[in-house]
Design a protein around this nucleic acid. Structure first.
Length: 906
RNA sequence: GGGCGAUUGGCUCAGUUGGUUAGAGCAUCUCGCUUACACCGAGAGGGUCGGGGGUUCGAGUCCCUCAUCGCCCACCA
């Protein structure tokens, strides 16, 4: 190796020295952007799941975007015209909350104080300043997105799409407005959809309240409740129709304590007589189940909560109190009246808002809804007709279950940051949807009366993200991008948004892309549900636990390539991955290994480039070419199927176990001989051919690795002599290597025996404690005649790899005296030792091996003695079992005879 | 209540359609700074595949059941 290269490339891969510069060069060369004019090659499109603008990169993002980048880089190399569109989501609630908080901190003002217009200006200002944070972090990861097409779900043209979609649904009658019981977030003061709440188990109390029976003094019906304050809104009590305890009371009237309202007792089968007292207070205004019960029995809906969670006017004396205060006072008063029967501690599930993490209060309010049933059909069929595949496949059922039971979608949010609902009213309150803004005072499209106001609410964020696969391409305009890049091929996302996002995108695509034939509407062919990243103890990474691992910090410490590769090899398809910081060492070591292997090869390529030579053709050369072909095929097939872990593992084995451990080591021998023999000799020519083989293998290996470790491979590609790069400047722009079906089974079989023999020699050396600096003579007795010629030919390489000074290869050689010995599946090896060496360790080793081998033989004998096996098993299996028995028997015989020899020596 | 995952050496995980003596990395032990790499090399020890039952000539691999852990859906006031 020449001094020049050694000094140019440090012995350790230092990613920080390369990443920034390489990324800039890729960008400058426009490699992330597909050609302006279609080349005629097939397209491959991926839309990034847009992270929230408020977001920072977490491990889930890192995992997800690494996979997308791998797919996209691999497809570019295999000849596709690739487009990967990046972008962010305006994330209504989250973003508004962030800016409101800052406003309060920095200016001491609330959004109401500065007004809608000014507040929105503040949010935009915030977005311009901070909105690119996460995109910049994606660049650190190496993501090869087309940044010239970066989108934001609240950009003007995206808004046009949102409005078009709303109006179309309106025109088809799929949008309606109504007073419904919705999930109300009292902290954020907005409705949220069913999909945005979760049930959290909490300790609570069950209060037993007595409601006096009208006209029967002293008689009560006791109801149990966890939310006593809602009794202010009770309009009935329900019991099971077959519950004998209450049979005579059905139809009678109760007097609601403190309020004095007369409420009926109704019979309803939804009541579980076993639970509580078997009597349920019915509060249609504040409980979903009661809402249904109330509807069945014509009970009044009484809203006793304000939007901020305080008791409303209907709550009479309690109006204005917080829920907690009202509860406390009510209970005290019940107790005074002797109407609080008892209080029990219970464990129950409380609905909590995903956004504010505060308890949801169901309440009735006017909201906009989308009818989902009509949209679900095509999304269900997409799976059935094969247009859409979910991976891992088990998520298909989850997707279908939701669609088959889908309920209407509450799309209005009482926020300011978001797509304003495109509905205007006249002074009678008649609504009309419009694609264009309607001036106040202009004629109402439906009534002709003057328009007086626009609906104040905005749309749920998902009402823009469900259009993402095509709104990013310019829809509703029929842009050339839309024609060229839609539909996409691959969507990779987290399991928790299968409903919120994935299913809705499929619905939206079928609903809105009616200019396309139905078979071109499915927005993505494969939906990949990636793993959840857990901490080292198997817990979800979360802000509150503080157990998250920051990917950017990991990139700083280990390098982007190490982070990417580690994530891929650690994550089995869709299986959750436990991650501790030190797990990235795996990738770091691998990258360093590649780096140094390349340094070795490049060192030998420095100065003379012999690309026009044939590759070398000794056994090990044929073997590594065959292994290389296998790796190319295996990695390619795995990536076609989105099996990232399998591809990563195949790469590891090829690079480390095949190329570094065996080929590079074997190559050193002939390189040395060539150098010693001097120019013009046949030995020098052979060495040149070895260099050629090393160079071409490195070139292929860099290309195979590139999707996983783009920075490292690009850095090394630059150092590779141009002829080996095929004149291509960037590794990223090179084409995927061709396996050429170059498997050489004979070379692989024979080399496997060489490896066995080398390992046997090394084992003996270790047992005899022969230091690496010593090169004893060895003897190899080949007991399989068919192998004799090929092993004899491989003798010099074998001796070199085993560190032997001299090697005699023969058939059935007599056991030399005073020899350390071991056996392999083709023969025996011998290394002499001095008379003072204790052969005990050798004996133990041989005995253990013999025992293990014997166990193998008896296992096979059992099978072969079984007539059923011979009759029923596949003939191929029987044959291979017989062959295996033969090989094992040979090995056992050699071991036994070696042991005998050892005894004679000892 | 329903559904889905997981359970393989000390740790983290692989194990295709049931058929080699169950693999890898980390950790451990021994030897070695052999001019690509000590983020390295060589060698070794260590598991009978959560428990039970079944199908089969043969099961880590299929079926049933139980247990433990995790996730999702529904949700009893």
């Amino acid at each position: 190796m020449t001094e020049t290269l050694a000094s140019r490339l440090p012995t350790r891969f230092q990613p920080a020295d390369f990443e920034g510069g390489i990324y800039a060069r890729w960008l400058a060369a426009g490699l992330f952007t597909p050609p302006a004019e279609p080349s005629g090659r097939p397209t491959f499109t991926v839309m990034i799941p847009p992270p929230n603008v408020t977001g920072v990169l977490h491990m889930g993002h890192a995992l997800n975007n690494t996979m997308q980048d791998i797919v996209v880089r691999h497809r570019r190399m295999t000849g596709f015209e690739v487009l990967w569109v990046p972008g962010t989501d305006h994330a209504g609630i989250a973003t508004q909350a962030v800016v409101e908080k800052r406003l309060l901190e920095e200016q001491g003002k609330t959004r109401e104080e500065i007004g809608r217009e000014a507040f929105l200006a503040e949010v935009w200002k915030w977005k311009e300043k901070h909105g690119d944070t996460i995109l910049e972090q994606l660049k650190r990861l190496g993501s090869s997105c087309d940044w010239t097409r970066t989108r934001f779900t609240f950009d003007a043209d995206m808004s046009a799409g949102v409005r078009e979609a709303f109006v179309r649904l309106w025109e088809k009658g799929h949008v309606y407005r109504g007073a419904r019981l919705v999930n109300w977030d009292c902290a954020l003061q907005t409705a949220v959809s069913d999909d945005e709440i979760e049930y959290v188990p909490m300790k609570g109390k069950l209060y037993y309240l007595r409601y006096p029976v009208q006209g029967q003094s002293g008689r009560f019906v006791t109801v149990a409740t966890t939310r006593p304050e809602t009794m202010l809104g009770d309009s009935g009590v329900a019991v099971h129709p077959e519950d004998e305890r209450y049979a005579d009371l059905v139809g009678k009237t109760l007097v609601l304590p403190l309020v004095g309202r007369e409420i009926p007792v109704v019979a309803d089968t939804s009541v579980d007589p076993q639970f509580g007292t078997g009597a349920v207070k019915v509060t249609p205004g504040h409980d979903p189940a009661d809402y249904e019960r109330g509807a069945r029995h014509g009970l009044a809906i009484i809203n006793v909560l304000e939007r901020d969670g305080r008791i409303a006017e209907e709550g009479g004396a309690y109006a204005g109190l917080t829920r907690e205060a009202a509860r406390k006072r009510l209970l005290a008063e019940f107790e005074d009246l002797g109407l609080l029967e008892k209080v029990e501690d219970i464990q129950h599930n409380v609905a909590v808002s995903d956004r504010s993490k505060t308890a949801i209060e169901p309440l009735v309010s006017e909201q906009w809804f989308v009818r989902m049933k009509p949209l679900a059909g095509p999304a269900i069929r997409a799976v059935a007709d094969g247009s859409l595949t979910l991976k891992p496949q088990r998520w298909t059922k989850v997707y279908l279950d939701w669609l088959e039971n889908v309920h209407d979608w509450c799309i209005s949010r009482q926020l300011w940051w978001g797509h304003r609902i495109p509905v205007w009213y006249d002074d009678d309150g008649v609504p009309a949807a419009s694609r264009t803004d309607l001036e106040i005072g202009s004629p109402h499209p439906a009534t002709g009366k003057p328009v007086v106001r626009q609906d104040p609410d905005v749309l749920d964020t998902w009402a823009s993200s469900w259009l993402w696969p095509f709104s990013t391409l310019g829809w509703p305009d029929k842009t050339t991008d839309l024609g060229r890049f839609y539909p996409t091929q691959f969507l990779s996302t987290a399991r928790d948004i299968i409903y919120l996002w994935v299913a809705r995108m499929v619905m939206a695509s079928y609903e809105f892309l009616d200019h396309l034939p139905v078979e071109r509407r499915c927005p993505f062919a494969t939906c990949f549900i990636h793993a959840t990243v857990l901490d080292g103890q198997g817990r979800r990474m979360s802000k509150s636990l503080g157990n998250g691992i920051d990917p950017v910090e990991m990139i700083d410490r280990y390098g982007a390539d190490a982070v990417r590769y580690s994530l891929m090899i650690l994550t089995r398809e869709g299986q959750d991955v436990k991650l501790a910081e030190n797990r990235f060492e795996l990738g770091q070591r691998f990258c360093n290994k590649i780096w140094n292997a390349a340094r070795f090869v490049l060192g030998h390529l420095d100065g003379d480039v012999e690309i026009d030579l044939l590759e070398a053709d000794a056994l090990e050369d044929r073997w590594i070419r065959s292994r290389r072909a296998a790796a190319i095929a295996e990695v390619g097939a795995a990536l076609e199927e989105y099996q990232f872990h399998d591809a990563a593992q195949a790469l590891y084995r090829f690079v480390w176990n095949d190329f570094c451990d065996w080929y590079v080591e074997a190559a050193k021998r002939r390189l040395r001989i060539g150098a010693d023999a001097g120019p013009g000799t046949p030995e020098a020519a052979d060495a040149a051919r070895v260099r050629r083989t090393l160079g071409s293998t490195l070139a292929d290996l860099l290309r195979l690795l590139h999707p996983f470790t783009p920075f490292l491979t690009e850095a090394l590609w630059e150092a590779l002599p141009a002829p080996f790069r095929g004149g291509v400047e960037f590794c990223m722009a090179s084409s995927w290597p061709d396996s050429g079906n170059a498997r050489d089974e004979e070379a692989e079989d024979v080399f496997a025996r060489v490896q066995d023999a080398v390992r046997a020699f090394r084992n003996v050396r270790a047992l005899l404690e022969v230091p690496p600096s010593e090169h004893p003579e060895g003897t190899l007795s080949v007991e399989v005649p068919a192998l004799q010629a090929s092993l004899a030919a491989a003798g010099p390489a074998l001796a070199f790899l085993a560190g032997l000074g001299k090697l005699e290869v023969g058939v059935d050689l007599a056991r030399p005296a005073h020899n350390g010995t071991d056996a392999f599946a083709g023969g025996a090896v011998f290394v002499p030792f001095g008379a003072d060496t204790d052969p005990e360790k050798l004996r133990i080793s041989l005995e253990r091996k013999l025992e293990k081998t014997s166990r193998g033989i008896s296992g096979i004998d059992k099978k072969l003695a079984n007539e059923n096996f011979l009759a029923k098993a596949d003939p191929e299996t029987v044959k291979s079992e017989r062959e295996r028995r033969e090989a094992l028997a040979l090995e056992a015989a050699i071991l036994a005879s070696n042991l005998e020899g050892l005894d004679q020596n000892g």
